[in-house]
Amino acid sequence: MKTTIKSLVLAIIFILTSALGFSQNKKENNIDDSNIALQGYSAVSYLDMGLAQRGTKQFKTIHNKIAYYFTSAEQKEKFDKNPTKYLPQYGGFCAFGVYVGAKFRVDPNKFVISNGKYYLFLNDLEVDAKQLWISEKEPKLIKTANKNWKSLRSK
């Protein structure tokens, strides 16, 4: 009887911690219920080619419980060797949004590469966040966005 209760308690703890981990992933990363990063675009294509290219399930990897798609086995291998290098800034949320203190979904085709990192931006008909980012002093924006991200990442 004690073993059954103990097993049940352990199972509940496991389920709760797994759910909390997934919930945290959704807070820190711009993913939907599919749990796919970058809406299926290849993280390696952004940095290595300067292109937004949609990856495929055939070349998929899991990093921190999030799926990443790539255009080739070579890209997948590069990511697997050094995932931190290829992760989007601010969990893939709009960089300008993080700068102003908010999280916004992005258009994977709107991005800027700077100093070996890439920043994604929302696509809004009234506000061109990418253009605002480019027209401002980027180091100042990055400094403020990095500061804001410390508190935003868990919200």
Rank of each mutant, 00 (worst) to 15 (best):
L38D: 01
A95L: 04
N146F: 09
T4K: 03
S135C: 00
N146L: 06
V100Y: 00
Y118C: 02
S18V: 11
L47Y: 01
N109K: 15
Q53T: 01
K147A: 12
F93P: 08
L38F: 00
K60S: 15
Y119Q: 10
I113C: 06
E74Y: 07
Y118P: 01
T84I: 06
S154P: 00
G91V: 07
I66Q: 05
L125W: 01
G116I: 14
K143S: 09
F111A: 09
S23Y: 13
N25T: 06
Y41S: 09
N25P: 08
E138F: 00
K147M: 07
G91M: 02
Y46T: 05
F59N: 10
A19K: 05
N109T: 15
I12E: 03
F121A: 05
S151C: 00
L47M: 02
Y46V: 09
F59T: 04
L141F: 00
Y46L: 08
F14V: 14
L8Q: 01
D33V: 08
K130D: 07
K137R: 14
V98D: 14
I66S: 07
Q53P: 04
F104M: 03
S114W: 02
L51M: 10
Q75S: 11
S154M: 07
G91C: 11
G55V: 06
G91R: 11
E77S: 05
A129C: 13
A67M: 03
N29H: 07
S135I: 03
Y119N: 01
Y90A: 12
G101T: 06
N29I: 02
T71Q: 12
S18E: 11
K65E: 14
D128T: 15
N115T: 05
K117C: 02
K2A: 12
G40C: 13
D124Q: 14
P139Y: 04
N64D: 13
W133I: 06
Q24R: 15
Y68R: 12
G50K: 10
K27G: 04
V112H: 08
F121I: 09
A129K: 10
K27S: 06
I31S: 02
D80M: 07
A37E: 10
T144F: 00
L20H: 11
G101S: 02
K81V: 04
Y68M: 08
I13F: 08
A145T: 00
P83L: 02
E126M: 10
S7W: 07
K155V: 05
F93I: 10
N109W: 02
K6C: 01
I134N: 12
A95V: 04
M1K: 03
F121Q: 08
W149H: 05
H63E: 05
